[in-house]
């Protein structure tokens, strides 16, 4: 039997890598595609979502025995929406530039299905420590993947990463990367790549197991 600490770590890593919300669970697609034209947006959106996810997971887990099953959906939504409103107001006050470039996607964290899905499928069934780890893992997994996506899009769409010029001066930015088609296609191609890597790793593991046996 694994000890408690071990399972918490495992829950955290599960969200970060194994069940990465973007590449495995395919949740929260709208902000993933909508804000990822610049790497700084990706990180900002990711961290804002992580904050809401961690808080809502913790609260819902604490309240899971009090909330009646019938009204759980409205109850979850109110909890999530409260944290989103906090983040929204905080960012408007202290990070006005980031808040402006993320636009309406901040209030829309409420309907980001990652948060709702984790509340329903994890926090409602597990203790607060586990739920906290799950929220943190999922949130950082989401942050990592949308930052990666936004780095690729910014590199080709503007020739920069985090605003620093990477491509040579003569590079002509590929404007379509900043638009809707670029987002869809880049994410699709990245998903193919991730799936291919996963398959190779899986094959290797199986081969190693076979060799051991």
């Amino acid at each position: 039997m694994a000890d408690r600490k071990n399972t918490v770590t495992r829950t955290f890593l599960n969200g970060l890598i194994t069940e990465n919300p973007t590449f495995t669970l395919m949740l929260g697609m709208c902000p993933t595609l909508g804000v990822t034209t610049a790497a700084s947006n990706g990180i900002g959106m990711g961290l804002a979502t992580t904050f809401v996810l961690v808080c809502s997971n913790l609260f819902i887990s604490l309240l899971r025995k009090i909330i009646p099953d019938k009204v759980r959906i409205p109850a979850y939504i109110v909890i999530i929406a409260s944290f989103v409103t906090m983040v929204d107001l905080f960012m408007k006050a202290y990070l006005p530039d980031l808040s402006k470039s993320l636009g309406s996607y901040i209030p829309l964290i409420v309907v980001n299905c990652i948060i709702f899905a984790r509340a329903e499928s994890f926090a409602a069934k597990n203790g607060p420590v586990q739920s906290l780890a799950d929220g943190l893992g999922m949130g950082l997994g989401f942050t990592a993947s949308i930052t990666l996506l936004s780095i690729v899009r910014e590199l080709f769409g503007s020739g920069t990463i985090f605003g620093a010029q990477i491509m040579p001066e003569s590079y002509q930015p590929m404007d379509i990367m900043n638009k809707v088609p670029g987002g869809f296609i880049t994410l699709g191609l990245m998903m193919i790549l991730v799936n291919a890597i996963k398959k190779i790793i899986g094959k290797r593991r199986a081969a190693r197991k076979e060799a051991l046996a």
């Binding site: 002509q172 930015p173 590929m174 404007d175 379509i176 638009k179 088609p181």
Partner: peptide
């Protein structure tokens, strides 16, 4: 269309 949207000036 991709070329047209990406490098409109050209």
């Amino acid at each position: 269309a991709v070329l047209f949207v990406s490098w409109n000036a050209i």
